[in-house]
Design a protein around this nucleic acid. Structure first.
Length: 848
RNA sequence: GCCCCGGUAGCCCAAUCGGCAGAGGCAGGCGACUUAAAAUCGUCACAGUCGGGGUUCGAGUCCCCGCCGGGGCACCA
């Protein structure tokens, strides 16, 4: 009672005062700067995805940096030396667009936003090592981007080619395949992407397709399943065969890729992609009428939007090239068509069409009256290698299923027919047999192909890393020597940044014209995709000020790979795939000893409002700084952790920052009610409360490590409730167990609410900082209950509850159950049909 | 169309091995304190786990079939 009176008259929880006080302390002490330290101290590298500096931080950032900080602070409490750096992904289009719109220099806009975001992060009490900040737009950083490019170039992994590319007509630049959304629009501008033929720089990521796919297995269980699936889909490997088709009056054979070499006898025509060079050649070698028809068709194809092209229900179109191929399986002459359902950049850009067993080919065959030949009898059920005709009396016959009449292709399993040496075989055996036959004949071979394409890295924009290549008088590529890096960006003030289809750097005439070893050369005027910047930044954090190398191998050896990566699922493909690729490349070059950059990945969900993504145009935006002003940093951070599982979206409408604030005040009040001295022996403390404390200490590490932050917060609340009860209704604030509990709360809370936790820690008589406290070891003797409740079920209904020792034996528990009067009355002489005894939890009795 | 993830109280969410459905919070009821209110403290109620089958002594948990919601892939040969 007296304690309560003291509370009412005592100080009140004032989050603004606490923030001011502790911010000052942290600014003075910089508690999270990582010092080299003892080599025996275990290390953790906890990395949050670095932000793009567009305006101030938003609620999404508030979530990542709250959750990442929980992990960083947790591992510090566990005695690890924790590296938790931050920087800015500060090259990119928005800076240029802002520059065009408002007439400011992209550099000024970018660095102004960085200053604002940095101040917000400091205010948010994210425990970053501020001595390692990097910005990808600093020449000290992008110099190493250029170095990376040159290394890739040396290995033939950076190359230039002329190809059909994705062109964003609004931003006036090319895009990577990964930046084109499924509906055919640009993920940046939202404009419908068009195809344009341009000479561009690529990174040869397809060389790494197998490793990028296979190494995902190592990440199983450590990365979200969803991300692994998305990456697997994106790489999209399919196994099959390459088959060479001779074409009459055409010098070289044409190779097609197929996943169904077993159906080669059913290939009745060939289709080539209209945009392919092959189609051009074949048309040019044909009659004038065909050439004209092809040209007209090509024009039509170019006018068709990506989105229409992907519509399955669209009528098949195409043009016969009046050329003939020879089916290598049976020597038949088959017609060659050009049709836009075949893509130029997948496989070889040409297919063998098997209309009976492929719906697309069938649709085409029916549209143009081409022959259809069944080569797989899908009515034959296959058992192992022997085809067996199904015993079903009323099974459909092959005649009923004839694709030519039904219009439905038969892609399934079955027994080979009309296929010469393959007749009678099952699908899998036929595939293997056909590959053998092709290899023997030298007209085909086993092959695999991928959905993944090479990574187009050129961008016709200003605010990015200049590509470190110059061109000599004859246009020859000359890499800029390493010792002449960085190739710095010219000042943007005098440049016309308006999108016009060519790089603004082309306008910097003094910059473009350069001197290389006495030769006059022209610089490449494109800049790199900013995903290059972020594909290796986690390495730069390890030696951010090293001006002799991109990263220091000794530091890399110490810290890398990243133990825990935290960020949004929107980067599930792009950034993560590129970072994995570059890591493997650097491994192959001997710079790294590991092949996967991020050992464990946590994807947080989005912060939404009223079930919808926040957006200024919809007017449903919650502002980060407003929330901090209203509820305080600790309450917002705590709310982020408590709202639910991290990977779920948080609807801010369902979140009560006021509730968090009340809880923090309640926890803080507990620290004021502790009246024992620091260091008091806890052994004689109230045992019931101590049990709660030690169960908490025991359970929380496992919960944090499995990212169940919401449960940890619930456990903190529970512990505070028990402590409150012990103070008011139990042994009172002088009991040592109350101190033990309050200290556990302060330490636990330091992961979520650093200001409140520091204040509690100080009120409890400790020196700052609680962030450097040690997670107390749980006393296991206090975790095991003296008695537990065992239930006795009779015919599935609970009929008795017994207080038993947790170590009770089966015999003993059975005896206790039988002796129980309630149980005895229910049995009442009836026969027991079944008895299950599972000490110490349950006795289940079935009566006859 | 194919592949993943989810569905527990009015709401957000817990529930190691299958073992009494509830840890925590929001919103709500009641009480104490107060002239009153806020704050604080205490206390209470509320679901049988989306539907249907199955396995089991026992299912929120495992299996099958649906429904609903979210996500990914999709003319990829």
């Amino acid at each position: 009672m007296s304690d309560q009176t003291a509370n009412e008259q005592g100080p009140t929880y004032d989050f603004r005062a606490l923030e001011a006080k502790w911010q000052q302390v942290w600014e003075d002490t910089q508690p999270f700067t990582v010092t080299p330290g003892d080599d025996s101290t275990p290390r953790k590298y906890i990395l949050d995805m670095f932000p793009y500096p567009s305006g101030d931080l938003h609620m999404g950032h508030a979530e990542v940096y709250a959750l990442g900080d929980v992990l960083a602070r947790y591992w510090r409490l566990r005695g690890f030396s924790v590296l938790h750096p931050i920087g800015w992904d500060s090259f990119g289009l928005p800076a240029e667009n802002a520059a065009i719109k408002r007439g400011v220099n992209p550099r000024d806009w970018t660095y102004g936003n960085i200053a604002q975001q940095r101040a917000s992060m400091v205010r948010y009490a994210a425990s970053f090592d501020w001595s390692r900040v990097l910005h990808t737009s600093d020449p000290e950083y992008y110099r190493w981007n250029q170095w990376l490019f040159l290394k890739m170039y040396e290995r033939g992994l950076a190359y230039r080619k002329d190809s059909w590319v994705n062109w964003d007509p609004v931003d006036q630049t090319v895009l990577a395949n990964e930046q084109v959304l499924p509906d055919g629009t640009s993920d940046r501008s939202g404009a419908m992407v068009v195809k344009k033929k341009l000479t561009q720089w690529y990174f040869k990521i397809t060389d790494y397709a197998d490793r990028l796919l296979d190494d995902l297995n190592q990440l199983e269980g450590r990365w979200p399943q969803k991300v692994l699936t998305m990456q697997r889909n994106w790489i999209g490997r399919s196994f099959g065969a390459d088959v060479d088709f001779h074409i009459e009056n055409h010098p070289a054979p044409v190779t097609v890729f197929t996943t169904r070499p077993d159906t080669l006898f059913g290939a009745t025509f060939m289709v080539v992609a209209p945009e392919s060079d092959l189609a051009r050649e074949l048309a040019d070698g044909s009659s004038d009428e065909v050439k004209k028809a092809f040209d007209d068709y090509l024009v039509k194809v170019h006018k068709t939007s990506e989105i229409d092209r992907q519509d399955h229900s669209r009528e098949k179109t195409g043009v016969f090239l009046d050329r003939w191929a020879i089916n290598p399986a049976n020597g038949e002459r088959i017609p060659v068509w050009a049709a836009d359902y075949v893509l130029a950049d997948y496989g070889t850009g040409a297919i063998m069409a098997v209309p009976a067993h492929d719906q697309r080919d069938l649709d085409f065959a029916k549209a143009f009256d081409l022959p259809i030949r069944v080569v797989v009898d899908t009515t034959a059920a296959m058992t192992g290698v022997i085809p067996v005709i199904s015993d079903d009396v009323d099974h459909e016959t092959l005649d009923d299923l004839d694709p030519a009449t039904t219009g439905v292709a038969l892609p399934g399993q079955g027994r080979m027919v009309n296929s010469g040496p393959l007749d009678g075989l099952s699908k899998d055996n036929a595939i293997a047999r056909m590959i053998d036959l092709l290899e023997e004949a030298g007209t085909g071979r086993a092959a695999k192909t991928y959905r993944l394409r090479d990574w187009l890295i050129s961008r016709q924009r200003y605010w990015g890393t200049p590509i470190p290549i110059v061109y000599g008088e004859d246009g020859e590529e000359i890499p800029v020597p390493e010792d002449q890096l960085p190739v710095t960006l010219p000042d943007g003030d005098d440049l016309d940044l308006t999108p016009k289809g060519t790089s603004p750097l082309g306008g910097a005439t003094n910059w473009v014209k350069a001197d290389l070893d006495g030769k006059t050369v022209r610089r490449d005027t494109d800049t790199m995709d900013t995903f290059v910047d972020s594909s290796w930044y986690f390495l730069r954090f390890l030696s951010p000020h090293d001006d002799t190398q991109a990263f220091d191998p000794k530091e890399v050896e110490k810290w890398a790979p990243v133990d825990q990566y935290v960020g949004g699922v929107e980067h599930a493909i792009l950034h993560l795939l590129y970072a994995r690729f570059i890591t493997k490349v650097l491994f192959d070059m001997g710079y790294l000893s590991f092949t996967e950059p991020f050992t464990s990945l946590l994807n947080q969900g989005m912060v939404i409002l009223d079930g919808a993504k926040m957006s200024k145009s919809k007017g449903n935006v919650v502002y980060f700084s407003d929330e901090l002003d209203s509820y305080g940093v600790d309450a917002v951070r705590l709310s982020m952790a408590f709202a639910g599982p991290p990977e779920d979206d948080i609807d801010w409408r369902d979140v009560s920052p006021v509730g968090s604030q009340k809880f923090l005040a309640r926890a803080w009040r507990v620290s004021g009610d502790v009246s024992s001295a620091p260091g008091v022996s806890v052994h004689n403390g109230n045992e019931e409360l101590r049990r709660h404390v030690h169960r908490f200490l025991h359970d929380v590490p496992g919960l944090v490590e499995s990212f169940k932050f919401n449960v940890v917060v619930a456990r903190l609340m529970e512990l505070v409730n028990h402590t409150r009860k012990a103070i008011d209704q139990g042994p009172g604030g002088s009991d040592p167990a109350v101190r033990e509990a309050a200290e556990a709360v302060a330490i636990g809370l330091s992961m979520f609410a650093p200001h409140t936790a520091e204040e509690m820690w100080e009120r409890l008589g400790h020196e700052p900082s609680v962030a450097h406290a040690t997670w107390p070891t749980a006393d296991t003797s206090l975790i095991v209950d003296e008695t537990v409740v065992a239930i006795v079920q009779i015919n599935g209904k609970v009929r008795a509850k017994l207080d038993v020792s947790p170590t009770i034996g089966e015999e003993q528990l059975r005896a206790m159950a039988m002796d129980d009067p309630q149980v005895a009355s229910h049995i009442d002489g009836k026969k027991i049909a079944h008895l299950v005894v599972r000490p110490p939890k349950v006795v289940s009795i079935q009566l006859a």
